[in-house]
Amino acid sequence: MSAKRVAVRGTWQTLERRRWRELGFSLGLMALLAWLLNGMGFFEAGRLIQGAFNLARFAHEMFPPDVRILPTITGALLETIQMAFAGTILGFLLSFPLGVLGSRTLFPAGVVAVVRFLVAAIRTVPSLLWAVLMVIVVGLGPLAGTLALAFYTVGYLAKLYAELFEAIDPEILEAMRGVGAKRRHLIRFVLWPESANAILSQLLFMLEYNVRASTVLGLVGAGGIGFYMQAYLGTMAYSRLTTVLLAVLLLVIGMDALSAWVRRRYLLHP
């Protein structure tokens, strides 16, 4: 047998081994899922049938939507949009400096470690919990919701920005050192323009997310449309709930469209 045929045979075996490994991995994953679901009672036929029955009845009561409440919920809907915008922008204003402080290319390891720990801690708390905390701190209403979204935004954007700033071409930083630039010049003339695209892109992503998140903050009294969701759910006014959900759906679709437009319009360069 020639050397070449041995090589081909070896390649073929490696390939097949890899296929089997992938298959085994997939099966393992399915087994894990089945085990988890089983633990939660997913495979109890009685429960499933009852569930389907409940769902059907719920759906029946949800339709047709009760549109008479539209004037009532319009204000809350606007408040939701306000919260999302204000929270996102506030969060962005805090994230940028934290991102700068958290990038190793600009600050000493000690500063970076502290900032990153802080940001990771902020990120650990889910947005609804931030809302609860902020309601305790500043009381009921949209201010609590706005602050909650701002914190949540900081947890993500500060981390993304720090990574973005660390990925900047070291030759540009070196050329800037070569002209005698200080750190403040790097921030203004390198960090900002080199990452403007990614910053805008992630900001839009965060805004879309916050619009969705802000619709539920009212559940804990932090302002916005969530208050009515809670109220109609609690009083089993399902046809009214449907109206609220459709309005939120429209809002989210509108927001995504706006964001897509901004991307097309402004995110041109590589």
Binding site: D169, E171, I172, L173, E174, A175, M176, G178, V179, G180, A181, K182, H185, F189, V190, P193, E194, A196, N197, H269, P270
Partner: peptide
């Protein structure tokens, strides 16, 4: 530097001005 180290998101004029920093 080899890849010039220009800031791509700034204009030609702005990049030249950086030389005066």
């Amino acid at each position: 530097p080899q890849q010039l180290g220009l800031v791509r998101g700034l204009t030609a004029l702005e990049n030249v001005l950086l030389g005066s920093l």
